[in-house]
Design a protein around this nucleic acid. Structure first.
Lengths: 106, 106
DNA sequence: TATATATGCAACTTTTCGGTTGCGCAAATA
DNA sequence: TATTTGCGCAACCGAAAAGTTGCATATATA
């Protein structure tokens, strides 16, 4: 039952929730209006995101506003970092290659 | 049965496979040695990663070497991008805040 | 050629996941 | 105070995922 951020963003609905909440804090009901499922289904996703520390909650009367903790995304960014270096190196190689064939033309 | 890159990297074993293969192309058997499961389980993960276009294969005799297609990770990187802007803005805000309190001191 | 090795594929099992339904509680409202 | 509204929690269900076992195929080797 212990989920991490990678599992949190694996589900398309959860990614959509994250994007929606990124623009502004929202209540479960407001969120559910954007999807074709029940409020409870959305609430379950919210719970998972909350447990994964992707969202934080703020109670306001009987409403609960969920807000994005964007820093959490850094964990994904950091993991991706190692591959970014690989593909950037490939670009460098491509640049070099293009430079070489340019040289040949001369 | 249609998986995307986010589901591909959701599984810890698959992430470990990706990292291992990032350093060098490997065969299923060589990979399986790194894990505490059967070869077939690893092979299943490889199949999923291959279908998701995260790996490419090269047959060499009776061995098959799998190699990382790091570019595929760009898709994740691009999705993360929008949140990177948020947390970087927060840094800017922090900078501004620090600048402000510095100004007050004067 | 007979055997060992490397691999993929298919069937089966167990666990997990995403969803629905139903309930209870607290806060707003009539 | 009685009712409505917003929410979380728990039980249940079907589908998908992850793993195991067994088998078939192709290549290397004795």
């Amino acid at each position: 039952m212990k989920r991490d951020i990678f599992q949190a963003i694996a589900d398309p609905t959860r990614r959509a929730i994250i994007v929606l909440i990124a623009s502004q804090a929202m209540t479960p009901n407001a969120l559910a209006e954007h999807f074709d499922t029940t409020r409870q289904a959305v609430s379950k996703h919210i719970k998972i995101l909350h447990e994964c520390d992707v969202l934080e909650s703020e109670k306001e009367g009987r409403e609960i506003f969920y807000k994005l903790k964007a820093e959490k995304m850094k964990e994904v960014d950091q993991w991706i970092e190692q591959f970014r270096q690989i593909w950037e190196n490939r670009f460098e190689n491509l640049d070099q290659y293009l430079a070489d064939i340019q040289k040949d033309k001369k």
